[in-house]
Nucleic acid binder design. Sequence first.
DNA 1: AATATATGAATGAACG
DNA 2: CGTTCATTCATATATT
Lengths: 181, 181
Amino acid sequence: EPLDSSRPQPAYAMAQHEQVMTDEQLETLRRQISVYATICQQLREMHKASVSHPIPFAGFVLGQHLPYDQFLGMQKTTARQRWTPSHSQLQILERLFDQGNGTPNKQRIKEITSELSRHGQISETNVYNWFQNRKARAKRKQQSAVQKDGDSEPDTDADSPEDKKNRIDGGAHIQAGHVGV
Amino acid sequence: EPLDSSRPQPAYAMAQHEQVMTDEQLETLRRQISVYATICQQLREMHKASVSHPIPFAGFVLGQHLPYDQFLGMQKTTARQRWTPSHSQLQILERLFDQGNGTPNKQRIKEITSELSRHGQISETNVYNWFQNRKARAKRKQQSAVQKDGDSEPDTDADSPEDKKNRIDGGAHIQAGHVGV
DNA sequence: AATATATGAATGAACG
DNA sequence: CGTTCATTCATATATT
C-alpha cells in the first residue's frame, strides 16, 4: 500500500513548522523508510561482495524488511499493533518448542520472555500466544498428514515455519510451475 | 519489479573469487544503490522535518520481494507459487459463499474440496483460506462503506478507500500484560 | 516499464 | 484448547 496521500485529510498547507501530515501518513512514511533502508543495506552487501556469491538476480530487490519500528534510529511514536518476533527470537522459540514439550507454565514463560527481551520487544502474552499457536498448528498439520492416506487433503489452517520448503508439495495445490532464479 | 531480473546472462557458476556478475550487472547494481540511497536520504529528510510536502511519491513500494534468506543465494530456490481458482471453481465458491453463511466447518470443507477437485487442483487449505479471505474482505468493504456518515462530501468515487482507521486499538500494543495461563 | 490493485497465504491475537 | 478473526506479506493480474 503506497502512501495514501489522497484522503480527505487536513490539507498540507504550506506550514512552516507545524505538523502537516496525518499520523497515518507519518506512519506510512516511517515504514517506507525502513523498507528502503533495508534495500540499501542489502544492495550494499551485494556490492561489497560482488564476487563469490552467484547472487540470484531474479528480483533482487529487497526481501523481508525489518519491522519498521525496529528500524535504526526510529523512535516509535506509533507502534505496530502486532508483535513480530525478530529472527533470533524466533530461532530461540523454535528451539524451545522442539525440546520442551507443550506450552510452558507461567513461571517458565516469564523466564523465556525475560530471555527474549534481550533480542527485542516482547511480552509474556506474546510468548504465550506463540506457543499456543505453534502447538495448535503443528498438531493440525500432523493430523492432516495422517489422513492424507486414502483420500484428500491437508489441514485447514496455516502451517508452521519450517514447512516453507515443503509447502507446495505437501500442502496447498498450486497451478503454475515457473520458479525464479 | 524494479530491477530487471531475468536476463540472458552467463550463469552464475560457482566461482570462488572471481567476478560473477557481468559488468553490465554490476553497473546496474551500482545504479540501484545510488538510487535507493538517494531515496532513503530524501525520506529521512522528509521524516526529520515531518512537515512540508504531501509526499508525492506515488506508490513508494516496490513489487517483487525476495525472502531474506533467499537473498544471499542461500538455500531455497523454491519460489512459492500460489493456487488460483479456475473459473468454474471460483463460480462454485462464490455461489457457496452467497448461500451458506460464514466459513464452512471442517467436514463441509472436505466436501467442497472434493467437489471442486473435479474442476482442477485444489486443497482443503485453499478452500479454507478462500472462505476466510472472502469473508474478511466482504466485511471490510462493507465497513468502509458505512463509515461515510454525515461527514465529508462525495467528491471522489469513494469505492475502495481502504480505511484502516479501525485498529483493534485500545492501546493493545506490543506490550500486553495478561497471560492467560 | 512503472505502478496499482486483487487475492492467496502466513500468523499474532482473540474468542468460546 | 480448538477455532476464528484481523492484519500483514507475497504474488498474480490489471492499468496507465
